[in-house]
C-alpha cells in the first residue's frame, strides 16, 4: 500500500518559556492510505502536537513531513492554508461548529471556501449529512443538537472537502457512550466502505478497541 503520510526525524521543541519542552521527539512514522489509526498516550505526551504538525498547523523544529509524496515543511503560510482546506479534514474535541449556521450550512462552509458552486455544495452537504444519519436535522443549529449530533456534523464537515485524510483530536472526549459508539460506527463505515484514512488521538479505550493500528506516544517519542 502507498504511504499517504511519511514522517522523518520529526522534532518539535517549544522554547517560548525558560524551560524547553520537547513535545515531539525524533518521530519517524508512515501512514498508509485507508488506515484507521489511533495515536494514544497520556496527557502531555505530544499527541495533539503531532496532529498539529501533520495538519500543517504548526511548524516542526526539525525533520520532514511528506504528504502524498510532497513535503509540507517550509511551505508558505498561504500555501499551508490552501493545503489544509483542500487535503485535510479536521474533527475537533469540542466540535467547533459555527453556532450561527445550520448543520447544512456548517457542512457547506468548506466547500464554499473551495469555490464550489452553491447548488453542488448544497447537494453534497445533504448527502453527507444523510450518511451520518442527520437527514432530519439539517436545518438545526448546533445549539439545537446533542453533542453526538454535533460531532456527526463535524464529521460531515470534515468529509466535505474530499480530503486525503482526516485528523481527529480526541473526537469522543465529550460524548456519552451511545454517541461514542454511533460516531465510531460511522467513522469505521466511512473507512471501510470509502477507504477514507482516519488518524485520531484518544484516551478512550472504546476508540482504541476500534482502531486497527495504535501508535503510542510517551514524552513525545513513539514507543513501539
Amino acid at each position: 500500500m502507498k504511504n499517504i503520510i511519511e514522517i522523518k526525524d520529526l522534532n518539535k521543541i517549544y522554547d517560548e518559556s525558560e524551560i524547553k519542552v520537547h513535545a515531539v521527539n525524533n518521530v519517524n512514522l508512515n501512514i498508509e492510505k485507508g488506515e484507521f489509526t489511533s495515536i494514544v498516550g497520556p496527557s502531555g505526551s505530544g499527541k495533539t502536537t503531532l496532529l498539529n504538525l501533520i495538519g500543517g498547523l504548526i511548524r516542526p523544529t526539525s525533520g520532514d513531513i511528506i504528504i502524498d509524496g510532497e513535503s509540507i515543511v517550509g511551505r508558505k503560510e498561504k500555501d499551508l492554508t490552501k493545503y489544509r482546506r483542500d487535503h485535510i479534514g479536521f474533527i475537533f474535541q469540542s466540535y467547533n461548529l459555527l453556532p450561527v449556521l445550520t448543520a447544512l450550512e456548517n457542512t457547506e462552509f468548506i466547500m464554499s471556501l473551495q469555490g464550489y458552486p452553491a447548488f453542488k455544495s448544497r447537494k453534497r452537504a445533504e448527502e453527507l449529512l444523510k450518511e451520518v444519519g442527520l437527514e432530519d436535522r439539517m436545518n438545526s443549529r448546533p445549539a439545537q443538537l446533542s453533542g453526538g449530533q454535533q460531532q456527526r456534523v463535524a464529521v460531515a464537515r470534515a468529509l466535505a472537502s474530499k480530503p486525503k485524510f482526516i485528523l481527529a483530536d480526541e473526537p469522543t472526549a465529550n460524548l456519552d457512550s451511545v454517541s461514542t459508539n454511533t460516531l465510531l460506527d460511522i467513522m469505521e463505515k466511512l473507512n471501510i466502505e470509502e477507504n477514507i484514512t482516519f488518524i485520531f488521538s484518544t484516551h478512550d479505550a472504546r476508540v482504541m478497541k476500534k482502531a486497527r493500528r495504535i501508535i503510542k506516544l510517551v514524552d513525545g517519542a513513539i514507543e513501539e
Partner: peptide
C-alpha cells in the same frame, strides 16, 4: 477564540 482557530485550521485564509 476557538471558533476562529477552527476557521483558520480548516482553511479560512487571513484575507477572508
Amino acid at each position: 477564540e476557538k471558533e476562529l482557530q477552527m476557521l483558520r485550521a480548516v482553511g479560512l485564509s487571513r484575507v477572508k
